[in-house]
């Protein structure tokens, strides 16, 4: 399996207003390959979202090495990171983060506005295919405020996957859903990721969601550790 992400001794530190340093991540080592399904669990405030931002190229480490498809992300510009992110990473957020006032179809087409070539010009067709894949083709014209939480998250999944990313990052994907809907959404996410051989990284504090992953880690006070009994 090809290595997508490689983190070696990654730290993330922020300077507080009183000039004190807050170490959010400390010496994180992690390798993620194509087709992996990884869960990272931890309490609120342990640095899960910060790690997700680093994995999704939204942020850069304070120190250590982070390679994305062999490219050291600290050495590329923010615009290059943006393009790499757009073409290879799909995000699923806890609060769905759908664009209000726009239809489901418009939302799913949004990432394709930043694509080029055939993907850009065929964005409507591709978005409809993806809506069909998540079972919401009939709701293409519906706006987010007319949808249930489960439907909104399925739209968010369709939007995250419409550019066929190689890495899917899900931040508490079931956090705003009831247990049953959450399980359905996770099953959908897992099956689509498996079909496309994309790596799926789920950040969660729900052990039931984490249990669906093939490899699991715990993040505690900025330190990442493989969970016992689970191959890392």
């Amino acid at each position: 399996m090809e290595t997508l992400l490689s983190l070696r001794g990654v730290t993330r530190t922020v300077v507080l207003p009183d000039d004190q340093e807050l170490h959010i991540l400390r010496g994180v080592d992690l390798e993620i390959a194509s087709g992996d399904h990884t869960a990272i669990v931890g309490r609120s405030g342990c640095g899960k979202s910060t790690l997700l931002n680093l994995l999704g190229l939204l942020d850069v480490p304070s120190s250590g090495e982070l390679d994305f498809l062999g490219t050291p992300v600290q050495k590329i510009s923010s615009n290059q990171r943006a393009r790499l992110r757009g073409s290879t990473v799909g995000f699923v957020f806890q609060q769905f983060n759908l664009l209000q006032g726009r239809s489901a179809l418009d939302n799913v087409m949004t990432p394709l506005l930043y694509a080029s070539g055939r993907d850009f010009w065929r964005r409507r067709e591709l978005a409809m295919e993806m809506l069909d894949r998540v079972g919401l083709a009939a709701r293409a014209d519906a706006k987010p405020n007319m949808m249930s939480g489960g439907e909104q998250q399925r739209i968010a999944i369709a939007r995250a996957l419409v550019r066929r990313p190689r890495l899917i990052l899900a931040d508490e994907p079931t956090g705003a859903l009831d247990v049953e809907t959450g399980q359905t959404v996770m099953a959908l996410l897992d099956s689509i990721a498996t079909e496309s051989a994309a790596a799926l990284v789920t950040i969660t504090h729900d052990h039931n969601v984490a249990a669906l992953a093939r490899s699991r880690y715990r993040l505690d006070a900025g330190v990442l550790q493989a969970l016992e009994g689970v191959p890392a």
Binding site: A82, R85, T110, Y114
Partner: peptide, 16 residues
Amino acid sequence: VREIGIRRSFGATSGR
């Protein structure tokens, strides 16, 4: 602000 953040997360560059 949130919408712009979402667009950035899907690959919109600052120039865009």
